[in-house]
Amino acid sequence: MAMGSFDANREPEGWVADLSASGAIADAAFADLTTVISRGLRRALAGRGVSEADLEDFVQESVVRIHQKLDTFRGDSKFTTWAIAISIRVALTHLRKRRWNDVSLEALSRGNGLAELQTDESAAIQVERNQEISRVLRVMQRVIQNDLTERQRVVLLAKLAGMPKESIADQLGLTSNALYKATHDARKALKKRLIEEGIDEEEVREAFMDASSTSEVPTR
């Protein structure tokens, strides 16, 4: 790659034009993009124990992905913020899938784990003590067992178990959009039935409030 002066402050259109060009202009733009992504991912992944080799792989794959998606850049943000967001999707997808590499939906299904809302011991104690939690979970249990399709049930409960969306999609042969739709439809069915049973969203929030949990939307 050609080595010129680093220019991470190109205008958004400048990035798209330079990365779409050929020869020395493109080489310089790719080198600058690699630097931006490398710095961004280092900060994004700090503390996760990601190796240098993995980081390098994530950077290279990200640069290719960003180039493929250039025509989808809407120009409503800095180009570099948009590019780093894509690189984070690339890196975290790999890390999520790796963590769940050896876990199959079949294994999660054992003991009816993807058919009903079974509680562990500590959860069972809280459910017994808190009538509101108990009431909400009873309704949700009925919906999961009676109202959801098999796909909706499996997707919802696998996500609840913590399995990443990419692993579920791979194992079920679904696109990410189809996976999201199945989850969304399942949640809509749960919410509809809760409302029919006289439990509105505020009551659900209050029943499951936990002072130790993180806020709903991350803040700086």
């Binding site: 919802l156 609840l160 949640r187 969203e201 659900v204 936990d210 949990s213």
Partner: peptide, 22 residues
């Protein structure tokens, strides 16, 4: 699979926050 109270809390909250036009 047995779910923890934190997992159930996550599902309940996600259900409460569900909107038709996500």
């Amino acid at each position: 699979m047995k779910y923890t109270i934190d997992q159930l809390r996550g599902l309940a909250r996600a259900t409460a926050e569900t909107r038709p036009d996500e």
